[in-house]
Write a protein that binds this DNA or RNA. Sequence first.
RNA 1: UGGGGCGUGGCCAAGUGGUUAAGGCACCGGAUUUUGAUUCCGGCAUUCGUAGGUUCGACUCCUACCGCCCCAGCCA
Length: 559
Amino acid sequence: MSGEEKSAPSNFIRQIVDQDLASGKHSAIHTRFPPEPNGYLHIGHAKSIVLNFGIAEDYRGLCNLRFDDTNPQKENVEYVEAIQKDVRWLGYDWDGRLFFASDYFEQLYQFAVELIEKGKAFVCELDYERMRDYRGTLKEPGKNSPYRDRPIAENLDLFQRMRAGEFPDGARVLRARIDMASPNINLRDPVLYRIRHGVVHHQTGAAWCLYPMYDYTHPISDALEGITHSLCTLEFEDHRPFYDWVLDNISIGCHPRQIEFSRLNLEYTVMSKRKLTQLVSEGHVEGWDDPRMPTIAGLRRRGFTPAAIRDFCHRIGITKAENRVEMSVLENCIREDLDAQAPRRMAVLRPLKLVIENYPEGRIEALEVANHPKDEAQGMRKVTMGREIYIDRADFTEVAPNKQWKRLVTGGEVRLRGSYVIRCEAVVKDAQGEIIELRCSYDPATLNANPEGRKVKGVIHWVCAATGVRAEVRLYDRLFTHPTPDAVSGSDFTYLINPASLEVLTDCLVEAALAEATPETPFQFEREGYFTRDPKALGLVFNRTVTLRDSWAKLEQQP
RNA sequence: UGGGGCGUGGCCAAGUGGUUAAGGCACCGGAUUUUGAUUCCGGCAUUCGUAGGUUCGACUCCUACCGCCCCAGCCA
């Protein structure tokens, strides 16, 4: 791999952990990663995973994986399984501490009974509309529900009958009894339980028709698991008073501290689960693991490594500031990792036939070429050379466009990577005037040696016609044409999808050594970028993970 | 004057009263190079949203103002 993994930089949450350890508030740290199984994990989740599991790792603490499965209407097992797979792939292990909020349904119910007994919760019969009206607005206080002062015994009876299934969906709800005039809307008697008949929960089946709300479930789940630091994103900051209220009003001997940090936003992609789901369901992409998706599964299929993703999560930091990270940061992470480890190979994406006229007919040479320019341990491989080879169309032009051009040109010389120096003697065109073949000569004295009396600047890659293998190559570009597609409200953001986000090249020619490539093994196709074999396609198909940095492309833009 | 947050270079982000205001990405030079890659050197905020104030000294403390984000699901 790419050597030692850099340690995670500190951040304000780690500083709080340091203080809690130093003050003796805690002697051990326990975090948790709590996804809702209603979609695949994305790079934003990776930020949270690396934070939570990373802290546990560095402080020799524990991190649980817990599914926040309180809304059976949106959740399913496919996601439960995919999420576990992705967390493992990222390099983390919950050591058997896999939990579901639904594991706690009975306890949650009993705590609700306790709240009722203490006069801290009541059964409300207001319908959706009226409940909204009673809630007030951001600037005006709400009004007490007419059911708010129901006798405890009646609440107890009603709540038990809600569980027993005596009421239809929406007819009754259990609410906390806090303060309808609170300036914090989350404290205006929030709903604790709602009724949902006829849905089969992926974990509890049909055992319940009563489901707890996230705000009520989360603090209790955390406390039950002995979590010390409950890390979540900024939008839950307003909910923290309620998180604390729940734990302060039930008999539970643990009170985790909730700390909020900002979500990750990445340029040219979307991160909201709703939008990602829409991309999949409407067929804008091939699926959750489409290599253009910012999902863990997509990045994996694209050829990203867990180490690069972890590195990225470290580089972007943890703060409370809104942010929108540039793609180049992610790209730099994967390039850095792959440059160090990926064996080099040659692949011609847009083939142009080239015949070396003074090269003996029928002769095939096996040349030894280094697998890596700096890592000798990667050894050498055999690459065959013959009279007919293919080079990339972009590496030849009849007349050099400028003095900086260092590829092949009519009458000019260029080095074939790991092979000889050749000179273009003539160009063959078809009836339409399109170049279909190059006639060249080679200098036999230039194998592993520089030519005498002249210097050849350019080096291009090539593939032997006799042994090269056909392959399909998929080139990916950013999924959106706009840096902040998330800023577009509603569901019409799809018009910002980049029509050129996927380019499929079906006539590529790759060196023979690539025929047995396996998925998730990275290769650098010299002068092109990093590629890995697609795990789903039937034939020999490669996905481009990322291009090489290309300072020539920048020069070309200029006059 | 509803409540809760945030504002350090193009993008992230250190900094927690005494420093020349870290680092990464990006960008701009230049060297090396059988990948226009990598690597290597060098450059890149007299200034920390703005304006005042406290202090011998402020990005760090105080005040006011400005800007941006979140909250009125029986979603999470």
